[in-house]
Design a protein around this nucleic acid. Sequence first.
DNA 1: TCTGCTATGATATAACATAACATAAGAAAT
DNA 2: ATTTCTTATGTTATGTTATATCATAGCAGA
Lengths: 159, 159
Amino acid sequence: MKSSDMPLDIDQIIKKSQEVCTLAGAKLTDKRKNVLIVLLAAATPLSAYEIVERYKTHFHEALPVMSVYRMLDFLIQEKLVHKLETSGQYMSCAHITCEHQHETPQFLICDRCGSVKEIGIKQHIIAELERSIQSTGFTLAHQQLELHGICEHCQIKPQ
Amino acid sequence: MKSSDMPLDIDQIIKKSQEVCTLAGAKLTDKRKNVLIVLLAAATPLSAYEIVERYKTHFHEALPVMSVYRMLDFLIQEKLVHKLETSGQYMSCAHITCEHQHETPQFLICDRCGSVKEIGIKQHIIAELERSIQSTGFTLAHQQLELHGICEHCQIKPQ
DNA sequence: TCTGCTATGATATAACATAACATAAGAAAT
DNA sequence: ATTTCTTATGTTATGTTATATCATAGCAGA
Ligand SMILES: [Zn+2]
Ligand SMILES: [Zn+2]
Ligand SMILES: [Zn+2]
Ligand SMILES: [Zn+2]
């Protein structure tokens, strides 16, 4: 299951992505765009090697995995894609078309079906986390939170 | 830097580990024990391959990486060792000698020196997290939280 | 001793990621 | 239009993390 239950308008997201890149003085080349499309069309995060396979299927063109890693680096820099550190997989940002600035992301990873829902982390959670570790002298870098569990759909389904 | 600033009494931890295993009907063999000792003596988490190297240095005996993975599986099952999912590294549990049951662990990972401090996650943080995702229908599995940042020591040191 | 179980060894391979250098494609300057 | 520079992509090799599979050793109980 795609984590968002809303149907995606890929064309619109790509259009917005173009704008984001142009604004940043970066170029969303055709291949970078196609990699993003593969991720947008996927129901779950994909590894770089899975992207190679799907790219081949979708676009009838081979893409070296080395290039995929570089394109992912680019897309991550532009915050169009995120990397899940706990699984080494990549997924498109769920908030590309949102106007607001990108917040610290929080990922809800379903351990049964593999779907991932990205939500912005609530400010008060960050504040609580910081308060709870204050005594350790540790300073948080706001990267991302990856939480594992069972998604809504998988809960109502039989095992 | 070892994350805990307290000097470790490795002998005492090993003794307790023996007890934990015996109680669980499991055997802490010499090799498993030695792998644990390597981790206890390390200042930072180690990869399985790094454990192989250090094992060789400490004990003048080669250990196949395959065996290390199996011993890590065993030690993780007995909660004597944790795996950091964000880096594929392993570290000894900081609470082996504690009497209380093992809580959901939270790891503060220093991105400058690589040290990791393990603390039990506060109940109210879990409650807050659960409340914040309630509307998504997602049910958290209490695995572990890996937080990145800068540790106390690295903050006072020049870059 | 025989039997069966658990631990470990050995080998191969899968899966994820980076390094280094070559070529192509496009923009800017001449 | 040609040269030059830069950026994007291709190619090959290798490093790193993890699993699969089958063989052997060691040990406990019948
Ligand atoms: Zn995002
Ligand atoms: Zn699910
Ligand atoms: Zn622990
Ligand atoms: Zn540090």
